[in-house]
Amino acid sequence: MAQVNGVPRPGAAPGQPCIFKLVLLGSGSVGKSSLALRYVKNDFKSILPTVGCAFFTKVVDLGAACLKFEIWDTAGQEKYHSVCRLYFRGANAALLVYDITRKDSFCKAQQWLKDLEEELHPGEVVVMLVGNKTDLEEEREVTFEEGKEFAESKGLLFMETSAKCNYQVADVFNAVARELSWREESKEGQRQRRDAPLTLSERPSWRGRCCAH
C-alpha cells in the first residue's frame, strides 16, 4: 500500500501545484489521524496511536487553482509535545483539533495556538480551529459558540466536524486551501504593487511619447 502511495516522483515538473505544509495539532485521540485519513482516503477505522509523526499528501482542486497539501499528522500525547514543536516549523497551515466531548482538549488547543505563535509569525500561517466528533452530540462539553467565539477572538477559521460521519471534513481542508491560495494571490498582488512604481515611472514617458505621435 505504502509502496503505491510512495510512487517516485522525480523533480517537480513546471505547472505542478503549489505545495503547502499543513500540520495537525491537538491532544491525544481527538481524531487528528482520523480527519487526515477521512480526507485523504475517505476511510474511517480504528487507527493506531501516532508515535512521532505520520504523513499524508493530497492534491486539492479549487477550480481556478490547484494546490497540494503535505499533511503532517503529529502525535497528540502531551509527552510528545517537545518533539511536535519541531514539526510545525515551516508550516503554511495548522489545524488545531479538539474533541467537542472533552473540555481539556479544547484548552489544549488554545495552548497549541500559543506555541504556534511563539514559533511562527502571526499572519504567516493559516490556522483553523476544528471541533471534531460532532457525532457524539449527547456527550458534548464544548459548545459550538465557545469554539466560534475563541476562534473569532484570535482570528482563526473555525469549523466543527465528524471524521466518523464524514461531516464537513473536506470543507475544513478546502477552506484552508482557499485561504492559502487567496493569501498567495494577495501576496502576489502586493509584490506587483511593490514593483509597480518602477513600471509606472517608465510608462508615462512611453505613453507620453505615444500620445505625442
Binding site: M1, A2, G6, G52, A54, F55, F56, T57
Partner: peptide
C-alpha cells in the same frame, strides 16, 4: 527516487 514527503510517508508506513 523519492522526495521528502514521500520518503517520510514511506518510512512511517513500511510495506506490509
Amino acid at each position: 527516487q523519492m522526495d521528502f514527503i514521500h520518503i517520510a510517508q514511506f518510512l512511517t508506513k513500511l510495506p506490509e
